[in-house]
């Protein structure tokens, strides 16, 4: 049985942890460090930080947040938002990140995927994909956190990203994000048919049944935001529900 990772996703704007709906309509939740530490203590398998306005304003406020997190959080940290170059990736890794998620800059210049994979290894190069349904069985890529439409087919882009050297795909459904109505499982299934690398399903988890559904449709990792940030469930509860449903997850977690 394959083990899926339970990942806490923290979207950040400036110094704040925020949460939106369809990647918009943002609400401030609190201090990202406080939440990140809690999720680590509760046994998160990984953390993802996304600076949701970095591409838009051409800046990144994540360095400080990440280097604070890396001081006492000993699980992998993925960081995305506004990363445009090999040097940006290097700076993020120096700050304490393990992997970088790249969306906008990769769509503008796909060679960046290969450059990052060659310098730091494919395991470091996470392709961030924001997909919006445009018809039955059809999705297109968005950039700048769901704001800019590119006209590029999302499933085809995942395949190209894999061929260019991406080691993992962070697959966010813009339609489902923040709705608590479940993941876009058709999207997960289509992407898992065309790439042999791990897929992180993101956007829409409102219940543990949604997580199991995404896993059964091919997700290798589940990004959880809303449910955790608003305290609708804790990671130990979510993990217990996964085990109950015979979904493969890490079992040795001791909750501090």
């Amino acid at each position: 049985m394959r083990n899926a990772r339970l990942i806490a996703r923290l979207d950040v704007k400036g110094p704040n942890l925020i949460k939106g709906i369809h990647l918009e309509g943002l609400r401030v939740i609190g201090d990202p460090q406080e939440y990140a530490r809690r999720y680590y203590e509760q046994g998160a398998d990984e953390l993802i930080y996304i600076d949701i306005v970095a591409s838009l304003y051409g800046r990144n406020s994540l360095h400080d947040i990440v280097s604070r997190a890396a001081r006492d959080i000993f699980v992998p940290l993925t960081v995305g938002g506004g990363i445009r170059s090999v040097d940006d990736v290097r700076a993020m890794l120096r700050a304490g990140a393990d992997k970088c998620a790249i969306n906008t800059a990769a769509l503008r210049r796909p060679e960046l995927i290969t450059e990052v994979a060659q310098v730091f290894g494919a395991q470091c190069m996470v392709l961030g994909v924001e997909a919006k349904r445009t018809g039955p069985g059809k999705w297109e890529c968005f950039t700048d956190n769901g704001r800019e439409f590119t006209g590029i087919d999302a499933v085809e882009w995942c395949r190209r990203g894999y061929e260019a050297g991406a080691g993992e795909i962070l697959l966010t459904s813009v339609d489902q994000e923040g709705t608590r109505k479940g993941f876009d499982t058709a999207l997960i299934e289509e992407v898992s048919k065309v790439v042999p690398i791990p897929i992180i399903a993101s956007g829409g988890m409102g219940s543990t049944a949604h997580m199991v559904d995404a896993y059964e449709h091919g997700a290798d990792a589940i990004a959880i935001a809303d449910m955790l940030h608003y305290g609708r469930a804790t990671l130990p509860e979510i993990r217990a529900a996964a085990l109950e449903a015979e979904m493969g997850v890490r079992q040795d977690v001791e909750v501090a």
């Binding site: 083990n3 990772r5 080691g167 993992e168 898992s192 042999p196 791990p198 290798d220 890490r250 040795d252």
Partner: peptide, 18 residues
Amino acid sequence: PSADEAGNRKVPHIGWSR
């Protein structure tokens, strides 16, 4: 050994194992 035809073993191996 890379994924079989059903894609049952993804490479890279990323995640927690006992």
